[in-house]
Design a protein around this nucleic acid. Structure first.
Lengths: 337, 337
DNA sequence: CTGAAAGCGCTTACAG
DNA sequence: CTGAAAGCGCTTACAG
């Protein structure tokens, strides 16, 4: 056994009475037809006995890979991307991959933290969340998977798999829920963020409300923060023909809508129904608790990593769509009178 | 230049007209007294010209290191640990280190995700947040830094640096603020979590209120979730001699306190003042916005990683304490009458 | 079906 | 002050 006490493939070879090559073949799963089953079993037993774990650094050096993938997200301050990372890292770890995170475009981070700047880590692949495929420009030949970025034109030569949420279905579920309660005048407090999610939701919302007999949609845009959301919701509430329900693009925006309502003496849900999207912690901390569409963020990361790993080993993973789930709580009720 | 197009130290050597050893010496910063300044400059210029970046896998293999540190946190669902990770990863990246995260004790994760189970990644060091030093039992000889874990008995032979928040100061600042407003009967909605932070805060709170002429502290414990916090706050509010202010161990607990107050028809802050700790997003989403102690979580991660890197290169980093900052918002006011 | 050998890109004694 | 050489632990042609 090597000095440091950690067994190497050489140790396993000696223990099993075979050569290092045979160990590598067996443990690498490339033995069938090349090594006898009995020998293979012997190698595996020896490895087990010794508690052998291959040295990744050696493997990487030999193979020219890094077993590292880059998770690219638009921001790290939104609570949404934590779970995305968690899901991706969990699947990655199971396959001996690490995940490094960078924001792009460059959040508040200095250029030193940019993936394009002094990125020390070479990477095998990219998981890009909530951004246009064009953002990957500088990584042209790196295998990539797009998350929550919608359908897109294929990159020049290669295939970029996608994992998305069922955004339109979610929007339709919200409208159906509100319509079922009797709402017709609906306000959309929209995130003024140029991402597929928000465009898709806006379109689906417009269509669903238009399909509603007597349905009318008004819309006001804001940044994804409480203050901006409060203002935008206020504009809708102060406008003519006040909506009886406010559909918000994010739970945090819904928190802003709550404030706008309270500032006007409107009770939620008696005078005004409010819905969110995401179902982060905040949703149940608000009062009344928020009716929202739960987006499986961790699952997005996990499925994305699964697709990327598949792609890296030569596969051609199909696009996936993860359905959201409408969680009805206490912020929605029939309109007054 | 090597086939893949990425230059190696050999390429740099050739470009500079020296040997690979000299390149390694110069770029590794170990040249002084061994290589002439002129040669060193030539090497650096050549490296720059070629855009040379050392291959970490080769370096790791040679040195027997992994350039990976493990961040151990009690849970990933709390919004507090995201920024800790971000801060740690930022500093790590600048030094070519990666950060892998694991929860311990084992959150909801299966054993496959445990650092003790099928951890594939070998690690150079550990950053352990919000847990007792004893939790590191199985990692006895791995260099480690404890974050937000308080002072502790030294590990058997080696030094374990610490980075903590000024928890007691934060508690005193809250009491001083409330006392200044005229509060005397103070309730502590305490997190029933066996972590140093919470013990230290509880003790400091008790002492500060006891030092207050006429001060009286009541206490009720809960889990860190809204429902449990609402119950605990309710018990305090329904007890004899109702407190005029509720000091909560976490912003999320404060959200529960808000609910308990509203359920009893108490206005915040007119009838009841409430304070939190952390200053997460939630604090400004609540209504009224929450007076709380901001804990620099990202800074905790950054300073912790700085200390760990120092430790790994043979240093003996001093313990650090990061002060919290009282953020006064709208949830505190003089008591009624 | 199995093994001996080369080589991935570094760092570090060692020799000069 | 500088270079030739060994070796970290793997994987993969190549030879048998």
């Amino acid at each position: 056994m090597s000095l440091a006490g950690r067994p190497t493939s050489k140790d396993v070879a000696q223990e099993a009475g075979v050569s290092q090559s045979t160990v590598s073949l067996v443990l690498g799963g490339k033995w069938e037809g090349r090594v006898s089953p009995a020998t293979a079993r012997g190698v595996r037993d020896a490895a087990e006995r010794l508690g052998y774990r291959p040295n990744q650094a050696a493997r990487n050096l030999r193979l020219g890979t890094t077993r590292t993938v880059l998770l690219l997200v638009p921001t790290l301050t939104a609570p949404f991307f934590g779970p995305v990372y968690t899901g991706a890292a969990r699947v990655a770890a199971r396959h001996g991959f690490g995940v490094v995170v960078s924001t792009w475009p460059d959040d508040a981070a200095g250029p030193a933290d940019s993936p394009f700047g002094a990125q020390n880590e070479a990477i095998d692949g990219i998981l890009a969340s909530s951004m246009a495929v064009e953002a990957l420009g500088d990584f042209r030949e790196t295998p990539a998977v797009m998350l929550d970025s919608g359908p897109h034109a294929p990159r020049t030569d290669d295939y970029v798999p996608t994992v998305d949420f069922g955004v339109a279905d979610g929007a339709r579920a919200i409208v159906a829920h509100l319509a079922g309660l009797g709402h017709r005048r609906i306000g959309h407090v929209a995130a003024a963020v140029d991402q597929w999610t928000f465009h898709a939701r806006g379109d689906a919302l417009s269509a669903a409300v238009a399909a509603l007999p007597g349905g009318r949609l008004t819309r006001s845009a804001c940044a994804i923060d409480v203050t901006s959301a409060k203002d935008a919701a206020g504009r809708l509430l102060d406008g003519p023909d006040r909506p009886t329900a406010l559909v918000c693009d994010d739970d945090l925006i819904a928190a802003g809508a709550y404030k706008a309502a309270r500032a006007r003496g409107l009770d939620i849900p008696a005078d005004l129904s409010v819905t969110g999207v995401d179902d982060v912690l905040l949703a149940t901390a608000l009062e009344p608790e928020l009716t929202t569409v739960r987006l499986p963020a961790e699952e997005l990361g996990a499925q994305g990593m699964t697709a990327l790993l598949d792609l890296l080993s030569g596969g051609h993973p199909a696009p996936r769509v993860l359905p959201g789930e409408l969680i009805v709580r206490d912020s929605t009720a029939p309109p007054a009178r």
